[in-house]
Design a protein around this nucleic acid. Structure first.
Lengths: 196, 196, 196, 196
DNA sequence: CATGAATGAGCATTCATTCAT
DNA sequence: TATGAATGAATGCTCATTCAT
């Protein structure tokens, strides 16, 4: 326990650099995530950043890896019940920018998604996490529907994930003033339609 | 006739600059859309670009204005029939990156959506076009459902638009190798669920 | 008379361009006297400026010519009396930046003097006007001293002119807050010493 | 000894950048003192200049600070004797552009004086050094005159300093071909008049 | 006579990166 | 392990100038 705290209290520079980068991205976008700005935000020297991430690309990849890990953690953190439907609602709701923290995550994800469109390395990571989350959702849809129709389960999962990410993108790219209901109602409507 | 040819032969630099910018964005993202690169792509001098767009921001705004106009044109161009359901399918299908041209548009839109997350000016344009398209879709959903339930129609529209944009974002940010069926089936599934 | 007024009322673009340039120089220095800024200040099109002054150098030379003419006019405008000493005091006092208008002139002259240090064309104009004014002053000093000592008269003139221009330069380059007495007293002191 | 050689062999980039800037100013004026030109003249990379002087303004201020220090050094370096009059002649003569080195200094000072007219930061430095030198001269005049008349001493100092700077400005701005006697005689004349 | 479109060189500045310590 | 000096390519932008009308 003491050891764990000690480890935690030593402020792992790589981690704080990644966090700083994500802060910058959330606030100003990936184009402002320069080595200088990240170093300043992290409170370390510019040379330190490049000690841990020799190139800027490595730094961006490192940060996106953390983003992807966060998504997985968020999805896995949702406590599952016997009610598949409410579980689905919970998991998908987790991905909507319904509060400041989730909005920040959405902004970060949108920034990296756009970058992934022109970066094969990031695209690969994006593909992985999308496949992963989709597979989880597909399993839930399949279990709920009772019958063994993997394709329908997978299509429903793809639809559901696209829906929440689309809603998040619309909210974030339109200024972020979307109210919570305007995000929840379309999701509920589609889930209800899909699950009957 | 002579006038028309004259107009056609002088190809409106502002237009070709915007087109060049969008080409660059589609290929390399907004971060590579420098004044120099755009000028080179458009085949004009760097000073010419800045004669038409005094600042880079003005150039980006001008380009996004064109993007927004294109979206409206694409939605409006879909021929409407008596069958509301097939109309919806047609309009929403138009927005999916099912061919090279539409994929290019999707890449461009994703790039600008990410930029809009940190640019109030672009965010305002994005909000406008989203509201506009959503309103059109809401009308269709409402008409189809028969009953007067504007809220449900609007929620369905929000869900449908988020779904197609989410699918497009996933396809584009995952490397663009998504096959056409993987895009169409989730849309069809949701539309079928929503319209029964 | 009517003709003269008509000529004067037609707002001779060359004249107003020169005036605009001098306004800009007085306010922001010669480095801000760009063709753009001058055109904007004069309220004419950028092309109009270059219609009258084909190159920027020509424009600057034109403006300095006007500056030089103004100096001559200011010196010549001082009404002469029988009292040579008070005439000298009046002429030299005219060149001190004792009010806003004269301070503006001093700022302009300093800017052009600095430019003349690296421009043979401007240096020639500067030499001319300096020689001219010095000759006038020398005549006065000579007349005052009674004896025929041209060299002493010329040296006194050179000293007096250097004194007032030095005082002006010091006032203008130190922020322009120099009070009137701090300008007048050194001049009076030196004149008194020189004339006894 | 070894330390001294080490220091000497690593030639302090900031210093050589300032020297290069002053060389450029002396030759072509402040308007040609671009970061590029200064870097090239100093023989360092353009990025190196901006490592030491983050902005061009900082570089100009740094250079003017050196100019001001040089003036103080030149004034202080004049060896003082028992003869106040000859001391005054020596100090003031030091400021006249009577040889190539002093002419270079005069050109530099004129350039910065003109810039100070539109730059509060430079104006403050200029005010400081003028007050400083004037105070030294005032002391000498006062001591010489014997009587306690601080105001007269200060006025005489202001007159003397304005005279030499005015002579320098005239020489430099008229092309720099002024002969040494034409500079010395007005100074001697005024000093003689002032000190009797 | 007066305009403004078009140009490209040059500007200050920001950037990621290399390297010596 | 961590730093910062040094670099030069690239950026957005300003500029004087040419030219067609």
């Amino acid at each position: 326990m003491i050891l764990f705290m000690a480890v935690k209290s030593r402020p792992d520079p790589a981690r704080s650099i990644v966090d700083a980068l994500l802060d910058v991205v959330a606030e100003h976008g990936l184009e402002r995530a320069t080595v200088r700005e990240v170093a300043a935000t992290a409170g370390v020297a510019i040379g330190t950043v490049q000690h841990y991430f020799p190139t800027k690309d490595a730094m961006v990849v490192g940060a996106f890896t953390e983003v992807v890990a966060r998504i997985r953690r968020r999805v896995d953190a949702v406590p599952l019940s016997d009610d598949v439907e409410s579980d689905l609602r919970a998991v998908l709701g987790e991905l909507l920018p319904v509060d400041a923290r989730r909005q920040t995550e959405a902004r970060i994800q949108l920034a990296f998604a756009a970058r992934a469109a022109v970066s094969p390395t990031l695209a690969a990571l994006q593909r992985e996490v999308l496949d992963d989350v989709r597979a989880s959702l597909a399993l839930a849809f399949e279990r709920r529907s009772g019958r063994r129709d993997p394709r329908r389960g997978h299509d429903a999962a793809a639809a559901a994930l696209a829906l929440v990410d689309g809603l998040a993108m619309h909210a974030v790219s339109a200024g972020g003033q979307t109210d919570v209901d305007a995000l929840r109602r379309p999701l509920d409507l589609m889930l209800a339609a899909l699950l009957t």
